[in-house]
Design a protein around this nucleic acid. Sequence first.
DNA 1: TCCGGCCGTCAGATTTCTCTGACACCCCCC
DNA 2: GGGGGGTGTCAGAGAAATCTGACGGCCGGA
Lengths: 107, 107
Amino acid sequence: MTGDELVSLLAALASPHRLRILAALTDGRTYVSELARRLRMNRPLLYMHLQKLEAAGLVTGELVTAADGSSVKYVEAVPFVVTLDLDAIAAAAPTVTLPGPAADKGK
Amino acid sequence: MTGDELVSLLAALASPHRLRILAALTDGRTYVSELARRLRMNRPLLYMHLQKLEAAGLVTGELVTAADGSSVKYVEAVPFVVTLDLDAIAAAAPTVTLPGPAADKGK
DNA sequence: TCCGGCCGTCAGATTTCTCTGACACCCCCC
DNA sequence: GGGGGGTGTCAGAGAAATCTGACGGCCGGA
């Protein structure tokens, strides 16, 4: 795993909402609106968090179109295991791209 | 470990700079200014990151006063091991305090 | 006395992340 | 046609994290 991937993964997990989302998905897959109700959060907000989790590879979304034509998006948690310690960090650190000096010389 | 502690830990690690800091400290302890030079970052910035790492319990600082009276602050990485998976998250999620609706009813 | 190195902190500008409300579109049932 | 439930996206307000430059204090050596 590259350093950037590790940072993305950690950033994705370092959020109360996203932790709760993942926890709710351990009970099995659900669709977005139902999940929003269960967690008591606005759908747009939930969408943002789901996108981050999906970008980090922690959840997968599947848009299912029923026989009648109505669509429902099911979300599912992706199993994973990551062990964090100083060695893992030392191995990943050399491959991180730092924030960049925001090289905005263009006065 | 509580959910909030987990979030703090992850937030502390989810940063390119802080990853590099920890990696640099695996070579052994150093003092702040030397570390700033090695990582090519401003000292105040390094200070902020060190404080976050220290708050998360990932590093310890020790202000050493030499025989001649000059002071140097040594920084050291604290060994740790954390395994992340869905079970760990499901266990921690119920104990997180969410951002709060910023209950600012006071119009 | 004037440098040089180190520590610690501050105000302030910037960038990034969060969160909300509103909108457009699709489908079925009354 | 008028609800009700779904998905998906947008602009913009608000809060939080990041980064820089400057200041002040302490100590030794030229």
